[in-house]
């Protein structure tokens, strides 16, 4: 990791020195343990601020839309897939972008750490050989990194960026995703699923952190903000309206969501935001054989119609 951080700094410094880009977007050390924070570097001498570790959790593709400068971006696997998806939707001009790909073994889920600490406050952490040392007032606890990876990272098949101008470090082993979590949820009864959603959505405060953290949520006017017509109630007190918001967001990102997990990580209320998106990603893959942002060639699932497309979701076939 320390080595990768140095490689990130060197690559950024070189790009800025050679004036290949005006800006490099990466991560710097955050203000809290297990937090790195997005960082915008415009001078080669500031490249030393950049870092790379298991807390670089934000999807930096979110910062690339409508950038007029030439931008270099430090992209992990999910960032790269989002970039590909956004290029296809004409949101990013690839000519103005330089992708520094970083193979990613997964990011730490701070919520899992909170559960482990059960009220004890994390004051420092250290990453060593696949282990994470959690330190606080009067305690030190080691946890295996793979046990505390974010859900989207645990099943991520594209830790190695699918698109990059240069790739730093060594590739990470490919993982498998069998969507067993989606199957397990589908196996529940309708009443159980409804109860689960009602409970989850009752926590929503409509801060829209999930939406704003999502690189694919870029509508000029989100349907929740629309007042004429007003599609859904503005109050957060209705878990029904909160579910409509989440369900519509999931449908709108169907075939476009790369399951980076940014929405989930951004939620301050600990809502299981990924659940709906995962189901749709699995369906799009199973029914249409499409996965978002895997390469520049495939047409986005929603932009292509074939007469023999399965329509099992609509009619019996």
């Amino acid at each position: 990791m320390e080595n990768l951080a140095r490689l990130v700094q060197d690559a950024a410094r070189k790009l800025l020195e050679e004036k290949k880009v005006d800006l490099v977007i990466g991560f710097e050390k955050g203000s809290l343990p297990l937090r790195s924070t997005p960082c915008f570097v415009r001078k080669a001498e500031d490249a030393g601020k950049l870092t790379w570790n298991s807390s670089c959790e934000n999807n930096l593709a979110n910062y690339l839309r409508k950038k007029t400068e030439k931008v270099g971006v430090i992209a992990k696997g999910c960032d790269a897939r989002s970039i590909v998806a956004l290029i296809k939707e004409n949101q990013i001009n690839l000519d103005n972008l330089y992708i520094i790909g970083v193979p990613c073994g997964g990011m730490i889920d701070r919520k899992k750490i909170e559960t482990i600490l059960n009220g004890r406050e994390l004051l420092a952490s250290e990453e060593k050989d696949g282990w994470l040392i959690l330190k606080g007032n009067g305690f030190e606890q080691a946890v295996r990194k793979e046990d505390v990876l974010h859900g989207s990272c645990a099943t991520c098949r594209t830790g190695n960026p699918v698109l990059s101008d240069e790739l730093l470090g060594e590739k990470v082993p490919e993982k498998e995703d069998d969507y067993s979590d989606v199957a397990a949820f589908e196996a529940k009864t309708v009443a159980e699923r409804a109860a689960y959603f009602a409970e989850q959505m009752s926590k929503c405060i409509r801060c829209y952190a999930c939406r704003n953290a999502c690189p694919m949520c870029y509508c000029e006017e989100c349907f929740v903000d629309c007042t004429a017509p007003q599609w859904i109630g503005k109050s957060a007190s209705s878990s029904g309206d909160n579910l409509i918001f989440q369900a519509m967001r999931a449908f709108h990102t169907a075939g476009r969501c790369v399951d980076c997990g940014s929405c989930d990580r951004a939620c301050p209320m600990g809502i299981d935001v990924r659940n709906l998106n995962r189901k749709l990603a699995r369906d799009v893959k199973e029914i249409f054989g499409a996965e978002a942002g895997m390469n520049l060639e495939d047409k986005p699932a929603l932009n292509e119609f074939k007469f023999d497309d399965p329509q099992t979701f609509l009619v019996k076939e």
Partner: peptide
């Protein structure tokens, strides 16, 4: 011009 650059414009800070 630079202080806000990483803000994603959600209301987590204000609502909490």
């Amino acid at each position: 011009d630079s202080l806000w650059e990483k803000c994603i414009g959600c209301a987590a800070c204000t609502y909490l």
